[in-house]
């Protein structure tokens, strides 16, 4: 019976793959490899290409990671090395609890609070500042919409921040205290201990945790859908509206008419599943290797 339940887990996983492939068969068959590389998305003429959505997914996630990973590691360092002892547990617990807040909360905050603020106070400034810098003037061009790729990336980074901090802190705590004490004993500064002892020791864990966060960011639907603007074209400017795979599916699936439209949306889901599978699999492998080195602490 327990084996049956365990096999059911595999069955569900295989079922997900089969249903995504069979559901997207029509679209993949019709458009071939062009589905991946074209960015036309026109329900009227029934021409669909996933490139704009893939591009938006990768860009928002990459930006979110660039912002959230250094901040998350900073918070973890603060918690393990700098935080006054009485504050350590409450702040740590608060961050872990925030990691469990549903993403729709971040989405609604982004839409009603952050986007208007960003539109009125930050975007005009960005546009003015970079307006005459070559190259950057294209990246930060256009009217301040408030919603757009950049806003979505910022909301995503805030959403994955508690998660990265919590995982990184746990990983830092697997570093044997003797190693750190030895380094402090020979006169290392806190920075040197972190940089030369703790980070090298825990690198696979930190990278694995970051990859888990990336997996979340790539597939995140609700935090993004509210603020990205759902525009199916690739714009050079980060301030312009864009779309991601999950935002496209969430916005259009229930309104999609025609087999080819639905099939293309499921095709997007298949691509998303493929990307996140690879990212999550790498994350697993990295985290497992750390576990083994830490002496099978959790095994």
């Amino acid at each position: 019976m327990t084996l049956g339940a365990a096999l059911l887990v595999i069955a569900i996983f295989v079922g997900i793959m089969i249903s995504l492939i069979s559901g997207s068969w029509l679209a993949l068959h019709t458009f071939g490899w062009g589905f991946l590389t074209t960015s036309v998305w026109n329900p009227v003429t029934e021409k669909f290409g996933a490139f704009a959505a893939i591009f938006g997914t990768l860009v928002t996630s990459a930006l979110a990671m660039i912002i959230a990973v250094p901040l998350g590691i900073g918070i973890a360092i603060f918690l393990t090395e700098l935080c006054p002892r009485p504050l350590k547990r409450p702040v740590g617990i608060a961050i872990e609890l925030l990691a469990g807040v549903p993403s729709i909360i971040y989405g609604i905050w982004g839409l009603f609070v952050f986007a208007p603020f960003f539109q009125q106070n930050v975007e005009p400034w960005i546009i003015d500042t970079f307006g005459n810098v070559p190259y950057l003037q294209d990246v930060f061009a256009g009217p301040p919409y408030g919603i757009g790729t950049f806003t979505a990336a910022l909301i995503l980074s805030i959403m994955i921040l508690p998660f990265i901090s919590a995982v990184t802190r746990d990983v830092f705590e697997t570093v044997p205290p003797m190693l750190k004490e030895a380094a402090y004993g020979v006169g290392c500064t806190t920075w040197e201990v972190m940089n030369r002892i703790v980070l090298p020791f825990s690198r696979p864990g930190v990278v694995g945790g970051a990859m888990l966060a990336l997996g979340r960011a790539l597939g995140e639907t609700m935090a993004v859908t509210f603020v990205i603007g759902n525009a199916h074209h690739i714009n050079e400017s980060l301030l312009a509206p864009g779309t991601t795979i999950s935002a496209t599916i969430a916005n259009e699936f229930t309104e999609a008419l025609g087999d080819l439209y639905v099939s293309s949306l499921i095709g997007l889901g298949l691509i998303l599943f493929g990307i996140t599978f690879i990212v999550l699999a790498v994350a697993q492998i990295m985290l497992k290797s750390l576990e083994r080195r830490a002496g099978g602490k959790s095994a």
Binding site: L20, I249, F253, L272, T276, Q284
Partner: peptide, 20 residues
Amino acid sequence: FVNDIMLSAPSIIIGLFIYQ
């Protein structure tokens, strides 16, 4: 391995699966 992937797989994918 499969379980840990499903643990963090995008939930919208699960919606698509059940839809089908």
